[in-house]
């Protein structure tokens, strides 16, 4: 059994438990174990873009230091935002030792961060460590006939310095969908922002964005969309359900890990969504038992 240190992040540990549940089960089937850090804190979610704001790098550094103290140098994330913030903070401090020294001076009697712990997104682990062929051998229930629009959002592929795929033409989600037997429906909107945290300040902007995203997916004939971020998922599910009242296509969204679980014959944990994906899955011959 391979193992990797794992950082849930606040969203995954709270309302995105279905993502963790299915990721853990899928990795288990692929002979990988996620070992949650014994202590962790919020990564800060939005990477600080100011050059003088070292305080906002303390959170990520603290998380990375926990990994360093376990004598490991990689940290698995499921959430795209955590992935981005952890990787960017690590780069920001590692490329200028003076910044790192100032952060360590602030941390005082706590262990210094020495640099070099890399956040790894689950999509990278699947593509680069596990490999698509290993995934394919575990597929027991191919998602034949299911049309899925991948939604990448922003932080998996932007900025370029930490992009895990091509910023304009990513393919990792499409590739995984094909391995699972589904038919990818790529749209131009798959890399366009859903409105992100503005869901807390300006939900109408988010509703407009998710309307555009779901319209593009529906135009391509998609049955549902997949996400890799609890915030994108919230916007494409809860906010889209609101937007659907005024005409947006009521297209369900699930985490890509949930579709993987379904294809591997594992519990897809599909009971948290506002827009229930089970009817469209059932219509494609992929009925999921509903627990009473």
């Amino acid at each position: 059994m391979n193992s990797i240190a794992y950082y849930p992040g606040c969203g995954v540990a709270d309302q995105a438990r279905s993502m963790e549940h299915t990721a853990r089960a899928v990795l288990q089937a692929l002979d990988w174990e996620m070992q949650e850090l014994p202590r962790w804190n919020c990564c800060g979610t939005v990477y600080s873009l100011a050059s003088d704001d070292l305080m906002r790098h303390i959170g990520p550094v603290r998380v990375l230091t926990h990994v360093q103290e376990l004598k490991l140098d990689r940290l698995l994330t499921l959430c795209s935002m955590c992935y981005s913030t952890l990787r960017r903070s690590e780069r920001f401090l590692n490329e200028d030792r003076e910044r790192l020294e100032r952060v360590n001076a602030f941390l005082d009697d706590e262990p210094d961060y020495r640099g070099g712990v890399r956040a790894v997104h689950l999509l990278e682990l699947l593509r680069d460590d596990i490999g698509y062929s290993a995934l394919e051998t575990r597929v027991t229930r191919p998602l034949e006939g299911l049309k899925v629009a991948p939604y990448y959002g922003c932080t998996l592929t932007r900025p370029r310095s930490v992009a895990l795929d091509d910023p304009e033409h990513p393919s990792v989600l499409e590739d995984i969908l094909e391995v699972l037997g589904a038919e990818p429906v790529p749209t131009a909107q798959r890399v366009e922002c859903c409105g992100s945290y503005m869901t807390a300040s300006d939900p109408s902007v988010v509703r407009r964005r998710v309307t555009a995203i779901s319209e593009a997916a529906a135009a391509g004939g998609a049955d549902l969309m997949i996400t890799s971020c609890p915030l994108c998922q919230y916007n494409l599910d809860a906010r889209l359900a609101e937007a659907a009242r005024t005409g947006a296509p009521r297209l369900p969204s699930v985490y890509f890990t949930q579709l993987m679980a379904l294809a591997l014959g594992l519990d897809p944990a599909l009971d948290e969504q506002v827009i229930d994906p089970r009817p469209v899955l059932a219509a494609r011959g992929l009925a999921v038992e509903v627990e009473a």
Binding site: C10, A13, W40, N41, I58, G59
Partner: peptide, 28 residues
């Protein structure tokens, strides 16, 4: 919370204050 841990250092009861604020954030 930026996880600076200043609260923990200030606590005369030696509680892990920052950790409980972080737990509060994640709903635990």
């Amino acid at each position: 919370c930026v996880a600076c841990n200043t609260c923990t250092r200030a606590c005369p009861q030696e509680l892990e204050v920052m950790d409980y604020i972080q737990a509060a954030l994640r709903g635990d």
